[in-house]
Nucleic acid binder design. Structure first.
Lengths: 337, 337
DNA sequence: GTGAAAGCGCTAACAA
DNA sequence: TTGTTAGCGCTTTCAC
């Protein structure tokens, strides 16, 4: 085991103090250029590597932000993260990514770990199971800024950014109605999530506004974001006495599964059945028929979230003007409707 | 700003030493049950949270493993990470995920940060730009175990796990030949990557073995893993004097782009042109026609990588019997061939 | 500009 | 079983 080189080693060889070395390494102003150069050179010669733990421990800043998402396995989330990283890196922050796998328990653990690792801030999208938000409140009380991302809650008072789900759902349902569909079904997500409730409400609102009475048999809800379950629900809907002529799905992944099942059952899309999704996943336009959906600016949303977080880290006093940003998605009409 | 509670605070109120508190908190054997309980209770009452930085700094163990992938945005990578987390969590390790975004420079930075943050080990898949591996060698010399994952190199002597790309490419090309295709093209990835070279070689080997002479005009290479570029290459291939009757694509994402372009050009798949991918992305089976591909057990590979890493962390002396695991993918025949 | 010294919060010998 | 003590490697006053 090679001895690890520390600033002390550099200091000794250069016959200066560790304080000077520390300053030089961090590019402090109050240091003579020659000293600085000498330190930098010696650091290189000795193959010095700073210990970030020690540094964060004593400075109380880690230059790391933590991101918690339900899964990195879906386009919306991974692309949001890309947006977050994009701004974080320009400000020299590193991004630590964690996934809760839709588990409340794991989410709590992650948040705790993040806080205990003294990250400078957290951006979080709740798991589908999360109904209690004490773990977040505790973090905020520890003076770690938290941004709620997409899957938010009204119970916590902090910065938030989310899609205008009600509006978006209403918009795309309206589009279906304009296509002369009257029997519109909805496959939704778990109603623990505000997002899911909003989309359901938006869907209903569009129907009512056009004088269509929502049919409870056509409102089904998944507890799992999988292709398979979407397929099952599709079959279930098609088995209702009066078959629907359109389906608005909570998310593209659901729509893809539903459409696949529909085609398998010999249903013609969009002729017999129009299908719409939400999220504009990268693959949606490569389906046949290509999927009509609401496009969410996930990359931009990530950027905004990161900007908000860095602002709040850098100016803690701004704390009181919490902002809640709502982003309107845009309708992308393709072949499935 | 609330004062942060430390083990010292607990020690003072309980009139015991910090060492005792530290032991109790970590569930050490050599502690009287009553003391332990008292400490735990006091910790709870005071709302104590351990400072992981301080703990890692002094123990020289972080219980964190770092994972570096080119992108989390593709199924193979995100699913591998799921596998890694699966075993890491059972052993109480946390997983820090980083993406290099296919940038060599960013990869270097991440690896350096990881090492400087004293993670216990690293699992890495190289960026497409990475041709020099000094940054990895340096980490290994710092006694941090490194597992090379999927995108590996022969230049570094350490644990490795990867798909048997040569075999897989040969297998699926063989399948195309069996389907009576004689004019088989290949859309490959950047040849900086060993993975890409192996798949190209496997493709050629299959041809030669069946007495088919590879046609250089039908071997094209992308520098970018995008649907768009795949589409362009498809058009390019179709413009060759003698059009191919099959294409083996380096990855599903490429195949999806190529197939989309082909269908747009009015080419009938698989009648005029068979298309095969590699990786069995989650969406591949929802395409029409559904994609023939080689399935890689990404989740299992992630698990294996994590197991190897934890082994090497827990028994450093085992260092010398580096293992290189090669995993055979399996052919999944669908409608596109 | 630079140095001395006191931590940051925790762990781990070594004693007792 | 518990306490004492010396760090882990770095930052940051406060002097000079």
């Amino acid at each position: 085991m090679k001895k690890t080189i520390t600033i002390k080693d550099i200091a000794e060889r250069l016959k200066v103090s560790v304080a000077t070395v520390s300053r030089a390494l961090r590019g402090s102003q109050e240091i003579k250029p020659e000293t600085k150069e000498a330190v930098l050179k010696m650091a290189k010669d000795l193959d010095y590597h700073p210990n970030l733990l020690a540094s964060s421990l004593s400075s109380k800043r880690s230059k790391i932000i933590g991101v918690v998402v339900p899964t990195i396995n879906r386009f919306f989330w991974s692309n949001s993260i890309a947006g977050i990283e994009n701004v974080a890196y320009t400000e020299n922050y590193k991004v630590m990514i964690f996934q809760s796998s839709e588990s409340y328990q794991k989410e709590i653990e992650i948040v705790e770990t993040l806080a205990n690792s003294r990250v400078d801030g957290i951006i979080i999208a709740f798991s589908k199971e999360t109904e209690n938000f004490d773990h977040i409140q505790r973090v905020i009380e520890r003076d770690i800024p938290v941004i709620l991302f997409e899957r938010v809650t009204e119970e916590i008072n902090t910065w938030k950014i989310q899609t205008d789900d009600f509006w978006g759902a209403k918009e795309i349902t309206g589009h279906l109605i304009q296509q002369n569909r009257k029997k519109i079904a909805h496959i939704g997500g778990p109603l623990t999530l505000e997002v899911c409730r909003k989309r359901l409400e938006g869907y209903r609102s569009a129907l009512l506004e056009h004088g269509i009475q929502p049919n409870p048999a056509w409102e089904v809800v998944l507890d799992d974001f999988s292709f398979e379950q979407a397929g099952e629900k599709m079959e279930q809907l098609w088995a209702t006495p009066e078959k629907p002529d359109a389906i608005f799905c909570f998310a593209d992944i659901i729509a893809i599964g539903a459409q696949h099942a529909a085609l398998k059952m010999g249903i013609s899309v969009p002729k017999q059945l129009a299908i719409a999704g939400f999220g504009n996943d990268i693959t949606s336009r490569y389906l046949s028929p290509a999927l009509t959906t609401m496009s969410q600016p996930s990359f931009e949303m990530g950027k905004t979230a990161a900007t908000m977080l860095l602002d709040s880290i850098q100016q803690p006093e701004k704390k009181l003007d919490y902002k809640c940003i709502s982003v309107k998605p845009t309708l992308v009409i393709r072949e499935s409707t």
